[in-house]
Design a binder for these strands. Structure first.
Length: 627
RNA sequence: GGGCUCGUUGCAUAGCUUGGAUAGUGCGAUUGCUUGCGGAGCAAUAGGUCGGGGGUUCGAAUCCCUUCGGGCCCGCCA
């Protein structure tokens, strides 16, 4: 029993009143009220006033009078506000108990949007020629959070990480290794991925302008990469696998896990392109241009004023976007699966990570397609993703089966850009892997860890190194994950070294600290509270506010999952923490003079902690008991 | 030129999907709170033409049109 059920009951009762009164059918909304306007509110009177030609307040009066017969254990009062809203007041003496007990169940907050249907989430997908930078982190965190949310909403989720191991960027570092004298086995303390990105990639691409022959070599390499048996392809595979391993280490540290790694090289060699190309021809989705600037090319017509998009060049080779089409179709199960599967590793959470192979495999065949696919890529790819979305909609009957979840990029503040040697004259700067203008993810994590380690040590001198390390990890990862999702997806994040280290206010450490406070109370109490008691003692405003918020967990899960909006959950966590801190400040829990009250308040603290942790789990944040 | 997107207080941001009741929050600033369960906290004060204009509506931060400003995308590159 939660506010969601309360709302559903009120909605259904109001519908009954509409039917009884023969009112016109309107799509009214029943939702939690703003503070001081009851607990639940409805806009039905506004909508009806248009049809009935009466004042909203009069209609509200009449409906609330009519509603009296439905009052009972859940709703104790209905009120027609002069503004026209109908406000409902929950019966908290009844709800206290239900909410607090329910919140202790493992499945608290679960909702059933997915009905166990299979859904694919693809995220991370960083070119395997470099280490992750702070912009990639946003992708990982959004993708991982959305996966967790969808699981909570009863979808059967599979997470894919696409490895573009045969693209231009990989070719660039191969040029570096083979023609510019960079060692593929450097004596260096830094990760191999970072070395490849910082040294080989940046410095090799710098040389193109001086030595045009290098670009020619690159295009030869690019061709060779598609041929499985070429020496180049074999060499590239060892390099990209090594880089991928380093990248995954960072992703795992961020708390993300995956189900399968897909390699572009294998998709190319699998022949999927020809199959989907034939299908597109059949459905007349692609046209062979007879004349004009795109003569002899296969194109997709642009919508409205947009240009046509070339899929196959006049020389018969496929363009970049053409590589994405078979993969998208494969994810939706539109094409027969040409792959076998091998185990890559078992991840920290116990989940097996698979990888595709075109070779024989002794492992049983897996499948990683779903009736819905969500692809997390930044919005600079919106145009291409729009074309793919449109194409996919022609192959399946279901609506919205392919979803591009876009997000704005992470840019660097003027100050941070300056530390990297770029004077932007006070403006923010776009990151660029090619130019070496980016902030390395591992480095940010390390910096945050050091800062939180120092803080924690100061406050908890008795803790051993292992515990300190764990806490520093939880707080550092919490901080970075929270910063990546707390604002809307289509708002640019300007990364600044100074500001990213802030641990106060609307941040993960604030929320984690609140959890530590709750833990401290429970620890000092010295016993687990008994939930088999009367909860009507909890009635001051701080207690009631907290209970109500706990009771709204599933509403926020629903909102977040429906809208694929991670920030909804981060906001919820923050509001829970704020409500607890007010309670903590004003209400003393441990009272030796009053055992009954202490027990019931300990129930509330326990419930809060349990709910907060469940909510934080959805955004991949762990709250330590001490920090 | 075309497409997408952002614009809410010094800075950052919520609310916009579903129009309605007092536009909420953080940082920064000023001030107060520890003989109390952890001050990574709490409370208070100052700060807002919701970019501008028009329209729809009894009612617009929210919907529509227009305009200005910022960002991104638009190759037979990937």
């Amino acid at each position: 029993m939660t506010f969601k059920i309360l709302i559903e009951e009120i909605h259904s009762n109001l519908q009954k009143i509409i039917d009884e009164q023969n009112f016109p059918s309107v799509s009214f909304v029943v939702e939690p009220s703003k503070p001081n306007f009851g607990d639940v509110t409805c806009n039905i009177a506004f909508l009806l006033s248009k049809h009935l030609k009466k004042k909203p307040h009069d209609i509200a009066l009449s409906i609330s009078e009519n509603y009296q017969k439905f009052l009972g254990e859940k709703v104790k009062k209905v009120e027609a506000h002069p503004s026209g809203y109908i406000n409902f007041f929950a019966n908290m003496t009844y709800l206290n108990e239900i909410i607090l007990k329910d919140s202790m169940k493992n499945d608290y907050g679960d909702i059933d949007l997915g009905k166990k249907s299979k859904i694919i989430v693809e995220h991370t997908s960083v070119n395997p020629n470099k280490a992750l930078h702070i912009g990639h982190v946003r992708n990982v965190v959004i993708g991982d959070t959305v996966s967790r949310l969808l699981r909570k909403a009863n979808y059967d989720v599979r997470v894919l990480n696409y490895v573009d191991d045969s693209g231009l960027q990989v070719a660039d570092i191969i040029v570096g290794f083979q023609h510019c004298g960079f060692s593929d086995n450097p004596h260096s303390n830094q990760k191999f991925a970072q070395y490849c990105g910082d040294e080989v990639y940046v410095k090799t691409t710098e040389k193109y302008s001086d030595d045009p022959s290098l670009e020619k070599k690159r295009s030869e390499i690019l061709q060779d990469l598609e041929n499985q048996n070429s020496d180049i392809a074999k060499f590239a595979e060892t390099i990209t696998k090594k880089i991928l391993a380093d990248q995954l280490e960072t992703c795992w540290e961020l708390g993300s896990t995956y189900d399968c790694l897909n390699f572009e090289s294998q998709i190319i060699r699998s022949g999927l392109w020809n199959k989907i190309f034939e299908k597109m021809k059949e459905l007349k989705l692609v046209l062979l241009e007879k004349e004009g600037k795109n003569a002899n090319c296969w194109v997709i017509r642009g919508e409205k004023n947009e240009d046509d998009k070339i899929l196959v060049r006049s020389n018969g080779t496929a363009t970049y976007i053409a590589k994405d089409i078979p993969y998208a179709a494969w994810k939706l199960g539109i094409l027969d699966d040409p792959f076998n599967y091998q185990k890559y590793t078992v991840q920290k959470d116990g989940k097996t990570l698979w990888q595709t192979t075109l070779n024989e495999s002794s492992e049983t065949k897996q499948n990683f397609f779903g009736e819905k696919v969500i692809t997390v890529i930044d919005s600079r790819q919106s145009r291409l993703q729009k074309i793919i979305t449109l194409l996919m909609s022609k192959f399946t009957s279901k609506e919205n089966s392919y979803i591009h979840l876009g997000y704005e990029s992470v840019t660097l503040s003027a100050d941070t850009a300056k530390t990297l040697g770029l004077d932007t004259k006070g403006k923010q700067a776009q990151m660029s892997g090619r130019k070496g203008l980016y902030v390395n993810a591992d480095q940010v994590i390390k910096l945050l860890k050091q800062k939180t380690l120092d803080e924690t040590k100061k406050r908890n001198p008795e803790l051993d190194d292992k515990s300190l390390e764990q806490i520093a990890h939880d707080v550092a990862i919490g901080t970075i994950r929270y910063e990546m999702i707390k604002q809307d997806l289509n708002k640019i994040i300007t990364f600044d070294y100074e500001k990213s280290l802030s641990l106060e206010g609307d941040t993960a450490p604030y929320i984690q600290y609140t959890n530590a406070r709750a833990s401290r109370i429970l620890e000092k109490a010295g016993f687990s509270p008994n939930f088999d008691v009367a909860f009507d003692l909890l009635q001051n405003e701080y207690e009631v506010n907290l209970i109500k918020l706990i009771g709204k967990f599933d509403l926020h899960v629903q909102d977040a999952a429906n809208n694929l909006s991670p920030k909804v959950i981060s906001k919820y966590c923050y509001h829970l923490a704020v409500a607890f801190n007010a309670f903590y400040e004003k209400v003393r829990v441990l009272d030796p003079e009053n055992k009954t009250l202490t027990n019931v308040r300990l129930c509330l603290v326990t419930s809060f902690k349990s709910t907060l942790q469940k909510a934080l789990y959805l955004i991949g944040i762990t709250a330590p008991d001490k920090m």
